[in-house]
Design a binder for these strands. Structure first.
Lengths: 156, 156
DNA sequence: CTCAATGCAAATACTTTGCAGGTTA
DNA sequence: TAACCTGCAAAGTATTTGCATTGAG
């Protein structure tokens, strides 16, 4: 039986194979192991987390290979890379999900995703204002928790 | 005679003095020299640029002091700090200008500022969606130049 | 067999920190 | 004169690079 995540991973695997072939690169066990880890076990992660998780699974890879693979996956469109306010790159898989922006809880650091159609209007009108064609945007909203039973909420 | 920039700088100088006193800190020539450089001669800058510009003016300070002062100014609300996609911190003065977001030209790296009232609506509605109170946001739009005579524009 | 990929360690880039000596209140 | 600040250099972080070795095609 196949979970949705596994389906998506298989799509990513195929996409990677195609990308590797069209670019004249090589298929390695490391690249597939790293891709699988990303697609099956990680949500928002940095290079170090990915590296540690691979080691924890008994998959022996070096940091250099992890960074190398991440760059490859970004070029192949399989992974997106973000720089939030924390000074290190964060990654997330990009297949099987729509474009989105992020909201970060200032209390606990949790990262939520959202998709607001108004953002298209904003980038459009700003582009018009400067006579420029918007290509992409990065939006992060920092917000404090107001859920009554959230353990991370600051005292009202 | 006084330029608007000088007026704003004087305001910043006063604000720094007040902040330093209320916090029980000390006034040093370095802190005022750095503040002046920021308010009179810099737009968007990183720590190294600021450091070099101070040296070029014959003002002897160490990098450590530059970083120290920048942190102080951020705490005092005199300077804002951003992390764009380039992996290093950028700073800008915050007095004498309204809150704004940034647009970066993907052709030449130029940084423009804009203020779109729709952003308030976006953060508000996203906050409502997650039951969180938005505190701030970082938005950067990356766009390609379409000005007909822009030397940085990519071939049509 | 050839060239790309890996692993390791060293190098880089940016920022922070520890400490001795100078300076402010 | 007591604590803060500065300057220098060393230490951190996160990421990249050089090079010998391994391995895919």
């Amino acid at each position: 039986m196949n979970t949705p995540a596994q389906e998506v991973y298989r799509t990513a695997e195929t996409a990677l194979k195609t990308y590797i072939r069209t670019q004249g690169l090589r298929e390695t066990r490391e690249r597939y192991a790293i891709l699988k880890e990303i697609y099956l076990n990680l949500e928002h992660f940095d290079a170090e987390q990915l590296y540690n998780q691979l080691l924890a699974q008994g998959i022996k890879v070096s940091r250099a290979t992890v960074y190398n693979a991440l760059q490859l996956f970004v070029e192949a469109g399989l992974v997106r890379r973000y720089l939030f306010g924390e000074g290190r790159m964060l990654y997330e898989r990009s297949l099987g999900r729509q474009q989105h922006d992020h909201l970060i809880c200032v209390d606990c650091g949790a990262i939520e995703e959202f998709c607001d159609p108004q953002m298209g209007l904003v980038t459009e009108s700003v582009g018009r204002l400067f006579h420029m064609r918007p290509e992409r945007h990065d939006l992060v909203i920092y917000a404090a928790c107001e859920k009554p039973n959230c353990p991370n909420r600051k005292i009202p």
